[in-house]
């Protein structure tokens, strides 16, 4: 009987986590699209020499970070999929939106500085699971950093 209650609780948690996780994710993707449109005039480039050095007035280091974790549904799904190999779609979308969010935060900092572009943008990612007792769902930090530059117009 106790086992049955435990099983129902676990399955319930997975189902709830799926629907809540899905809703949060969809809402986040919508918000990301809207905010990315706002930053079209402030591109972040991975190159270092796209702008003429003479034309650059001012520069500063900018960065943005996000700590994100998977949900129970994704964890169970990943455990199942690992058996067969191949793509683990749940984690792909999770990392994708975390990275885009981090870029947006960096761009927001660059805008505050009054920048025209961010050059030499780099990604960094570290697993934080060992930071908690909680080994379950996978927790990681994504860091994006680059050099915000002000370009001399005219």
């Amino acid at each position: 009987m106790e086992n049955l209650i435990g099983l129902i609780f676990t399955v319930g948690l997975i189902v709830v986590a799926y629907f809540v996780g899905k809703t949060i994710e969809n809402r986040h993707f919508e918000a990301l699209k809207a905010r990315e449109r706002e930053f079209l005039d402030l591109p972040s480039l991975t190159t270092q020499h796209s702008y003429d050095e003479e034309g650059i007035q001012d520069c500063r280091l900018v960065y943005g970070n996000v700590v994100i974790s998977g949900d129970y549904f994704k964890m169970v799904l990943a455990a199942l999929l690992k058996f067969f190999g191949g793509r683990i779609v749940g984690y792909e979308s999770l990392i994708d939106r975390a990275r885009r969010e981090a870029i947006l935060r960096m761009q927001a900092e660059a805008r505050q500085f009054g920048a025209d572009a961010v050059i030499n943008t780099r990604f960094e990612m570290s697993k934080l699971d060992a930071m908690t007792q909680n080994q379950g769902t996978g927790m990681f930090e994504i860091l994006v950093y680059g050099t915000a530059i002000k370009v001399n117009h005219g």
Binding site: L13, A17, V20, G21, I24, E25, H28, N65, V66, V67, I68, S69, G70, D71, Y72, F73, K74, L94, A98, E101, L128, T132, N134, G136, T137, M139, E141
Partner: peptide, 15 residues
Amino acid sequence: AGCQNTFGGELKGYS
């Protein structure tokens, strides 16, 4: 963070 871990998404406290 432990609670948010259940549903996934950003852990603002850690960020």
